[in-house]
Amino acid sequence: MKTILVTGASRGIGRATTLALSEADAPFERLVLVGRASSAFEESVAEAKAAAAGKDIVAIEADLDDPEIVTDIFAQLDAQGIKLHAIVNNAGFAKPTSLNETRHEDFERSMRINVYSPFRIIQAAVVQNHPLEQILNIASTAGINGRAGWLSYSTSKAAMINMSEVLSDELKPYGIDVICLSPGRCATDLRRTLAPDEDPSTIMQPEQVAEIIKFMMSDTGKLLHSQNLVVRT
């Protein structure tokens, strides 16, 4: 059963991606949704179940602020006999502050959620012999050029872009495609944290990014090769 795992499935791009991949023409029969225990996650899971005619929706509550939780996630997959064919590393954390005001703890949290947990998820899937075909890592245009005032977020997304380049090479013998997708301004809760005064209706919508992710998972989308795919308004 073709299975995709999506992290950060409660809100924003993750929730929209979940909904897009629940549609009948998306090439997966099962979606594993990972999110923190919250009413938003419950709603997203219910929404996916309602939209997914005949598809299996599996919900795993996990907070990726603790990379060790990845061991539990894979134990749950094993217990249910689930093997992953694709992964969307979407979960992200942002606390936009300058050098002067960045707390060490917040920097570490950004790295744990945005870098270490995706690393642990990919490593577990590869080493535990999941039949992976595609990995899609969500980075950010803020990872391409550093943004003043977003020290920890920019740094963590730069790490994600670079890690994706390394993985693209290292996972070639496995036949796994690694896609790095860097959205620009997108109307999500995370963006509201980064730019509270912006009118969200004037920028890219999460549903549009989700459509691109769905396309990247299609047979035609697999023909599109890019070191770091930028989507922006």
Binding site: V166, D169, E170, P173
Partner: peptide, 13 residues
């Protein structure tokens, strides 16, 4: 070679 020990290529296949 390309990040993996030569021995690993056989194991991956």
């Amino acid at each position: 070679v390309n990040g993996h020990p030569i021995m690993a290529y056989t194991l991956i296949a």
